[in-house]
Design a protein around this nucleic acid. Structure first.
Lengths: 139, 139
DNA sequence: CTGCCGATCTTGACTGATTCAAGAAAGATG
DNA sequence: CATCTTTCTTGAATCAGTCAAGATCGGCAG
């Protein structure tokens, strides 16, 4: 279990109980949506407000301690695995998300053939398909 | 200008004035959001309801005549360029979107190293960065 | 050309994730 | 411990998108 208190100090953020609870919740349930994170955080800190969770998630995302994912058709989801350029595979049927590393190399697809003058700093890849459960249980 | 009436018939959809107006609007303004499409469609068909536009966009998307894009932090956007596996670059500052072809080849990044048993049918890539305007005009 | 049937459209209300705002509480620093 | 901000609580608001009921229209059969 990472030292979340330490992580917060390293990015010059105040150590507050809501933030610790949110970090722990996101770490324990990768790819969880905000509602689930609120529930998990309240297991640790019963009176935390939903707004504090939203604020914490934004702050932690800006600081790079958590990463948010928003596949089309899904609400925002969060994870603590950051800074390693991994991607996600999303089930079209049930919305299940899993991590994947791109086969192409360290900086996959970062080179667009013609970027129209844009200065690109990140390539985000979402693989769409069916998870094992939904594949074996059609309809 | 493509024959939208013909396109609708080819996918067994009824040819209605709202659908023609929506197709024409999306074709004329690639990457436009729903509100803009409603406005453009009303230039052609003044009394069209927002619900008809939403319905048409869904139907046309399901039929493959238009494609929707939902970058994180943006509302849904649409384009008529479909079926060619191109990707998008999105400006973090102003939200501007441009098309890009992936340099890697025809099926970029479609091979994940470990897909956790998912059956993958599409890889969606979004490049994040700054557009030329926002690069030259910082802050 | 006319009538019918089901798909599609209009109207209007509603939902729900996320945001905004004002005041209260609580980290951090000296 | 005192002070100054930042952060949190509370409660309301926003807004893209959806739902539902009835009216209308496109396509096809006669």
């Amino acid at each position: 279990m990472p030292d979340f208190q330490q992580q917060l100090r390293e990015v010059a953020l105040r150590v507050t109980r809501p933030r610790l609870a949110v970090l722990e919740a996101v770490h324990a349930h990768p790819h969880a949506d905000t509602e689930s994170i609120i529930a998990s955080a309240r297991a640790l800190l019963p009176e935390v407000s939903h707004q504090a969770v939203y604020d914490s998630l934004h702050t932690l995302t800006d600081a790079g301690l958590v990463r948010s994912i928003k596949p089309a058709g899904s609400v925002a989801r969060y994870e603590t695995r950051t800074g390693d350029n991994h991607h996600h595979v999303v089930c079209r049927s049930c919305g299940e998300i899993a991590d994947v590393d791109c086969a192409v190399g360290h900086v996959p697809c970062l080179t667009a053939s013609d970027s129209h003058g844009f200065v690109i700093d990140e390539a985000e890849v979402i693989y769409w398909g069916l998870c094992p459960d939904c594949t074996s249980r059609p309809q």
